[in-house]
């Protein structure tokens, strides 16, 4: 049985002419133990998808089954408890509460379980140790480097031993050395059996994943199983082409399009084809988020 099962899930923002389709009838199944990298240009709906999978958001249409439970009609409180018990989040930035020290930040999810303070600080301390930040326990977030901050965020995502870890551009603000540390950490977690979802703009990082999902305009336009340790062909193409141009975003789109047309033979999914024609005939008004 799949862990995550999205069936024709849509997410719309706004009304009438101003409607933005952040997710357009997306169907996606993810099994336990997968390391899924999600790529795509800015505004393509990656974060929206992550929020949906992470139970922070509810689909406008469609059904979402998480761990065999139908989420669409679940109460706010039950979704919160499910997040607490089975999910861990790492965001691009501002992951930590500035007023709390590293240890308290890591212990945060446990507090909402009603665990005693001694126990949760002990558990948080153990995770920090595991991540190699034992000597930063009593630092305040502002005293940490970007890489350390993200590793603390991963520690927090780990502390409740979640089934799924969702990382939305965790290396977005980091240099390559720090990125490497963070990715090695996620990779270790993958090997330990955690299911990992990673949003990234850097094709290089897809080498850690077992599967790459490409998005555009709220659609999944490609979905590729890959071998861990290798950059998948599609991402590689995207990566090299992207390097030549200046504008990251537009290059991303055009590169992806080119890559897709040359790989058309490989992508036989009905959904993908449909989308291709659709998007070529009637280009969507794309809103660039950043």
């Amino acid at each position: 049985m799949s862990l995550i099962d999205l069936s024709e899930v849509s997410k719309l923002y706004g009304f009438g002419d101003a409607t933005t389709i952040a997710l357009d009838e997306v169907s996606l199944t993810i099994n336990k133990g997968e390391f899924v990298a999600v790529m795509g240009p800015s505004g393509s709906g990656k974060s929206t998808l992550m929020h949906m999978i992470g139970l922070l958001d509810r689909p406008t249409h469609g059904t979402y089954t998480f761990n065999g439970r139908l989420i669409s009609h679940m109460s706010v409180a039950r979704r919160a408890r499910l997040r607490r018990d089975t999910l861990g989040f790492v965001f691009q930035s501002s992951n930590l509460i500035p007023r709390l020290n590293v240890l308290e930040n890591v212990a945060l999810p446990l507090a909402y379980k009603g665990m005693t303070q001694t126990r949760r600080l002990k558990q948080a301390s153990a995770v920090l140790e595991q991540i190699g930040l034992a000597d930063r326990e009593y630092f305040m977030p502002k005293q940490l480097s970007g890489g350390q901050t993200q590793r603390v965020a991963i520690a927090r995502a780990l502390v409740n031993n979640p089934d799924v870890i969702i990382a939305d551009e965790p290396t977005g603000n980091l240099d390559s050395a720090s990125s490497l540390l963070v990715m090695e950490l996620l990779s270790d977690l993958h090997k330990m059996g955690h299911t990992i979802l990673l949003v990234t703009h850097n094709p290089e990082l897809t080498r850690y994943s077992s599967r790459v999902v490409f998005m555009r305009d709220g659609l999944i336009i490609a979905d590729e199983q890959t071998q861990v340790g290798r950059i998948p062909a599609l991402a590689r193409k995207l990566y090299f082409m992207q390097r030549k141009t200046v504008d990251d975003d537009l290059a991303g789109v055009s590169a992806l399009m080119k890559a897709l047309s040359s790989d058309a033979a490989q992508n036989k999914s009905k959904k993908v084809k449909k989308i291709k024609t659709k998007s070529f005939k009637r280009p969507r008004k794309k809103r660039v988020a950043k």
């Binding site: 922070l56 919160a80 989040f89 992951n95 999810p109």
Partner: peptide, 10 residues
Amino acid sequence: IRKAVGATNR
């Protein structure tokens, strides 16, 4: 952040 890590509204 608190809600993301599982704090309920209550």
